[in-house]
Computed example of a mutant assay.
Amino acid sequence: MAKKLYEDMLFKMITEKSRERLLEFLAALPPETDRNFELYLTKMAQKIPDINGLLTEVLEKPPVTGEEKADLIAFACFFALNIYYRHKRDITKVHDIIEKYRHRFSHHPMFPHVLSLYYRSTGSSKDLKTALDYAQQAAQLMPGNPGVQHSLAEALINLMDEGEIEKSEANLNRAEEAINKAIMLEATYPKFYSTRGRLLALKGMFKEAREAVEQAIDMEDSTAHDYPIRYSGYQDILGKIRQMEFSRQVDKKLAEAEGKINKARQETEEQLKQFRVQNLEFLGLFAAIISFTVGSIQFVSRLTFEQGVILLLIFTGSLLYIYSGLSIVLHGRAYLSRTIIVLALALILFFVSLAFKGVLVK
């Protein structure tokens, strides 16, 4: 019933925009802590072009009634003007109005909410943090107001989006709790869903994010005079979500490519290491062969045939023994079976040389 009453009064204002009609509408508003206070003023600012002039007139010259009632009507005009100019993206005008009436209306519980909405719209990183501070104040004063909960969620999302605070689980959960509470309290307000979409995008849920923003577009009133601005804002959000998704895909592909490059580099380094080890192994074996050959020639030339055979067996066993030791030093346990075979051959040659020597002695 109350909703129809306000809609009727709003229709009368559209058909007859006058101070009397405006005062009638403002006097019937619910308390400022009630969500409908903001909603009805928002509808008025959206549906009545150039209402700013009449609102300014009443704000500067409120009706001669009780002081408290006059203050509430003046604050409603102040609040509606903020909505009007913010939707027009005239942030300079919003700033001027706030500064002009700051001391006059700072005692109102809705005033921190007004400040949060203003600082959130300036585009300054510093102001985004200020907006969060005022949003938290407003949420403490009016925890059951969905518009205030939405403002808190949006302030957190803006800061994470700009990289001013971390996209931590704690911050994401705080924003999710606030936006879910706002939607639970008022499921028919379109912008709440676009804000949920932004949050889902921050969590990497891009398909769900796009669906949430598209739901907000479908829920909007296309007859409102600021509908083109709102629609453009939603399209901007969809564009940013697509950009975030593309950036995430590129980062993923770059990470995969970097992993493959690192793996290839490690494999190359390992191959080079093995190559160097093999070179050292061959070099050591070659040096041993040269030493063996030279030593054999020098000693065998002075000995009998039998003594030469024994010496050659001993030299060959020593060569194999040195090769097995070098293999352990260079490869560790990698070629243990091969090293054991070579070492066994060296021992066999030693025993054969000893046995052959024993036969000669007999």
Rank of each mutant, 00 (worst) to 15 (best):
E7V: 06
D8Y: 02
M9C: 07
M9A: 07
T15N: 15
R19D: 11
L26C: 06
P31L: 05
P31S: 07
D34S: 08
Y40V: 00
D50S: 13
N52Q: 15
N52T: 08
N52K: 11
N52L: 03
L55A: 05
E57F: 04
V58E: 01
E60T: 03
P63L: 08
V64H: 13
T65Q: 10
E68A: 13
K69D: 15
D71T: 04
I73A: 01
C77R: 05
L81T: 06
Y85R: 00
H87D: 14
K88E: 15
K88F: 06
R89N: 15
R89W: 11
D90G: 06
I98W: 00
E99P: 04
P109I: 07
M110P: 02
P112M: 03
H113R: 09
V114Y: 04
L115G: 08
Y118P: 01
Y118D: 03
S121I: 02
T122A: 00
T122N: 01
G123C: 07
S124I: 00
S124G: 07
K126F: 05
T130E: 13
T130A: 12
D133L: 12
Y134G: 09
Y134P: 01
A135Q: 07
Q136K: 15
A139K: 06
L141Y: 03
M142F: 08
M142N: 06
A153I: 10
A155S: 15
L159R: 13
E162I: 07
G163F: 12
G163W: 13
G163C: 04
E166I: 02
E166Y: 03
L172G: 07
R174Q: 15
A175H: 11
E176L: 14
E177A: 14
A178C: 02
A178L: 04
N180E: 11
K181M: 09
S194E: 01
R196V: 04
L199F: 06
F206K: 07
F206L: 10
E211T: 00
D221H: 07
A224M: 10
P228W: 05
P228Y: 04
P228L: 09
R230A: 13
Y234S: 08
D236M: 12
L238A: 04
R242W: 04
M244I: 06
S247K: 14
R248E: 12
R248P: 00
V250Q: 12
K252M: 10
K253L: 10
R265H: 03
E267P: 03
E269I: 05
Q271M: 11
Q271S: 02
F275L: 09
R276P: 00
L283I: 05
G284F: 02
L285R: 10
S291T: 13
F292L: 11
F292N: 04
V294Y: 11
G295A: 10
Q298W: 15
Q298S: 13
F299W: 10
V300S: 15
T304F: 06
Q307T: 09
G308C: 04
G308F: 02
L313V: 11
L313C: 12
I314E: 06
F315I: 02
T316D: 05
T316P: 00
S318E: 07
L320E: 08
Y321T: 02
S324E: 08
S324W: 04
L326M: 14
S327D: 05
L330Y: 03
L330C: 01
H331V: 01
H331E: 13
H331M: 05
G332T: 11
R333Y: 11
R338V: 05
I340A: 12
A346Y: 03
A346H: 00
F350H: 00
F351M: 12
F351T: 10
S353M: 08
F356D: 00
V361K: 14
